[in-house]
């Protein structure tokens, strides 16, 4: 992957803006406002007050869900990739494609309508992406390196610490890039009930009141949040996996 510069971002933004305007002009409907209108609504909504509260609330939910899915999913994926039997793998394949949103009623019954149920729903959606990605990364570790550490007298712990874990790190970052995007998208479901704040609820409310400028302001904020995660993860990967960076 080539290093990205500011002008790459600028060009990408310009392409996006041009596409937006072309679409808005050709559709010519209030349901898809011009870029200027959406931008105005964005600046207005997020220059302070409740807009930022919406943003921070969502950010908190997405971050916490991601952390939980990592804490649970990484060991689970590593286990399946290294020593998991066929049963564990079949289970994951059965559970992964299920649309987790159908569990929302059950989740609400068990956990109530507060933050816990929202975070649990997001976590449930992204957890299996973590498990499958990490599992594949761990399963792909070459036997040669394991033998090499063994021949130096390494125990199972050393093999894990010096081979399996570092070999899986790039896969873990791939998982993170996937799931932060998904988690932001899931906000739209998780924040449609019983919440005052959150970008999902902002978009939902604006939609129901036909404030399309504000609705797209909320969508822009979601895109920005997802993008912020990408930038953060790229940076973190460079710091944590310097060997991979120098290979590019």
């Amino acid at each position: 992957m080539a290093r990205r510069h500011w002008y790459h971002y600028a060009i990408a933004l310009a392409i996006m803006a041009a596409g937006w305007e072309a679409l808005a002009l050709s559709l010519h409907t209030p349901a898809f406002p011009r870029l200027a209108e959406a931008t105005r609504a964005f600046v207005e909504a997020f220059s302070g007050g409740p807009g930022l509260q919406h943003f921070y609330t969502s950010l908190y939910r997405v971050t916490l869900s991601t952390v939980i899915s990592l804490v649970v999913g990484i060991p689970w994926g590593l286990y399946l990739g290294r020593s998991g039997g066929p049963i564990g793998n079949v289970l994951v394949y059965l559970l992964h494609p299920i649309p987790k949103v159908v569990f929302l009623p059950v989740i609400i019954v068990v956990m109530g309508i507060g933050d816990t149920s929202k975070i649990f729903l997001i976590t449930l959606v992204i957890l299996f992406q973590v498990v499958v990605t990490v599992r594949d990364a761990a399963a792909g570790v070459g036997q040669g390196l394991i033998r090499s550490v063994k021949s130096l007298g390494g125990s199972e712990w050393h093999i894990f610490r010096h081979v399996i874990l570092p070999a899986s790190l790039p896969g873990i970052f791939t998982a993170l890039r996937l799931v932060t995007g998904t988690a932001v998208a899931v906000l739209f479901f998780a924040e449609t009930y019983a919440t005052k704040y959150g970008l999902g609820s902002l978009v939902w409310d604006a939609w129901s009141m036909r404030q399309y400028g504000l609705m797209f302001a909320g969508v822009m904020a979601m895109a920005l949040m997802g993008f912020g995660f990408y930038v953060l993860l790229d940076w973190a990967e460079r710091v944590i996996c310097p060997w991979a960076d120098s290979q590019r």
Binding site: G144, R147, V149, G153, H162, P166, W243
Partner: peptide, 23 residues
């Protein structure tokens, strides 16, 4: 080993020290 068994995520110094670290 035939393919040297160096760990790609460790520098030369860390690779050379791996046996020492393990022990």
């Amino acid at each position: 080993m035939q393919d040297y068994g160096l760990l790609p995520w460790k520098t030369v110094r860390e690779n050379a020290a791996l046996g020492l670290i393990i022990r």
